[in-house]
């Protein structure tokens, strides 16, 4: 019994050794595999680094552009204010009075004034340099860019229902 058992064990051991040897790769294959793996890792790292570099470069460029545009906006705001002041200077009360005199106009004389009734729309309006607070400003970004697809579908369905109801007599 013991011998039999021993014999079987010995046979198994022999088979195991054979199997192990059968699946062993040749050294050059292992080498190629390792080099390939190394190259793949390297390529991956290079790819990631390349993408990172590219995005960083783009971000940097955009960053500089933003800075430049902000500086330009600031300069142009200042220039606009400056031009507005210059225009006001050129049309100031004293300058306009002098120009009128040079053109042969005279200050209005009450005795020569002729009063005629005119429509209220023709009467000079006081300064309205900005809209009143009640009027809502137009949104800068259209709602379509902010709503989800689901919101949009719901809205369209609701609108369709309203249109159908309105169409019914």
């Amino acid at each position: 019994m013991n011998d039999q058992t021993f014999g079987m064990t010995g046979q198994k051991l022999t088979m195991d050794r054979t199997l192990f040897q059968a699946y062993r790769e040749s050294p050059w294959r292992i080498q190629v595999k390792r080099i390939g793996l190394g190259l793949a890792i390297f390529a991956l790292i290079a790819l990631v680094a390349g993408i990172y570099l590219s995005i960083s470069a783009q971000a940097t460029e955009v960053g500089y552009q933003i800075t430049y545009l902000e500086a330009t906006r600031e300069a142009q705001t200042l220039e606009i204010a400056s031009l507005r002041s210059e225009l006001a200077s050129l049309t100031s009360a004293s300058v306009m009075a002098q120009r009128a005199r040079d053109l042969g106009f005279q200050p209005a004389d009450m005795s020569q004034a002729l009063y005629v009734p005119v429509e209220s729309s023709m009467v000079r309006r006081e300064a309205q340099l900005a809209p009143p607070p009640t009027s809502k400003p137009e949104p800068l970004i259209k709602p379509a860019y902010k709503q989800s697809l689901w919101d949009w579908i719901l809205e369209e369905i609701l609108q369709l229902r309203i249109n159908v109801r309105e169409a019914q007599p």
């Binding site: 200042l78 220039e79 204010a81 400056s82 507005r84 002041s85 210059e86 225009l87 006001a88 300064a127």
Partner: peptide, 19 residues
């Protein structure tokens, strides 16, 4: 911020800013 401007009742600039 840019200092606010001052106008007369008809919108003529009385105080502005220059560069």
């Amino acid at each position: 911020p840019e200092r606010g401007e001052i106008f007369d009742r008809w919108g003529n600039l009385l105080a502005g800013n220059v560069e």
